[in-house]
Amino acid sequence: MTSDLFGGARIPASFMVPGTSSFTDFLAGQAPELLPSRRSLPPGQAADLAPHGTTIVAATFPGGVVMAGDRRATMGNVIAQRDIEKVFPADEFSAVGIAGSAGIAVEMVRLFQTELEHYEKIEGITLSMAGKANRLAALIRSNLAMAMQGLAVVPLFAGFDHATHVGRIFSYDVTGGRYEETAFHSVGSGSLFARGALKKLYRPDLSDGEAVLAVVQALYDAADDDSATGGPDLTRRIFPVVHVITGDGGRRLSDDEVAEVADRMIAGRMQRPDGPQAGLS
């Protein structure tokens, strides 16, 4: 099917039929083999076959939301990759970060990105923030069989809601359950530590720069206590991927910008390795 796309023949009649605005639904009819959920796996556990991504954190600030992910992928006790990217723009006003089986997660993100863009082009308007979150839930739900064999994908979704002009965060479970989070959230193996750190660092009136520093601090704390989360790699200058999304759109902070924040954080940790101190009362 895909081999003759653009191959010089007439466009198949099924492409011209109006109806669905969903790329996933269209693929299911035209080329189901391209959908991650249509693959059948032999029985058995597949968890140890492929690398796993680890910690993602997100936090809102007035007028937007920031999402960051560490750079490590692990396979058992081995570090499979030290500069993997796990936070992606879903469209111009939202981002998705992934924890779990990396290969399937990246494929799912590509499908999700195409899904949002496809709807926008066909309908001429973007999906609502809740609509986007629900589409992602449907993709996760369709992966349940693979999740039960150890290839789970657990994303974190965040974006700017044009209806309410605030940043919003959604978390998921492997069955496609969708939960809206307030203020901040974290997923992945280091998420417990990251969330604990954010509890002490987060304030609702953070500026965008302060929110970036808070999530970078939280990732450091996650890496401090979770072997599968990568800390800042000072010798190779590998730092977290950070996306900042506001009403003007989302953007990934450049390596230099994140390096500056990370260097500032590390300078503080040289004085106090456990990070900034929260007040007792």
Binding site: F6, M16, P18, F26, L27, A31, L111, T114, H118
Partner: peptide, 25 residues
Amino acid sequence: FENLRIAGVRLADMRGYSYDRRDVT
């Protein structure tokens, strides 16, 4: 032309998804 437009979007998105964004010309 709306049918042709939708077909074009589907063709382009499907090609970009199965190959790479750069391969849509």
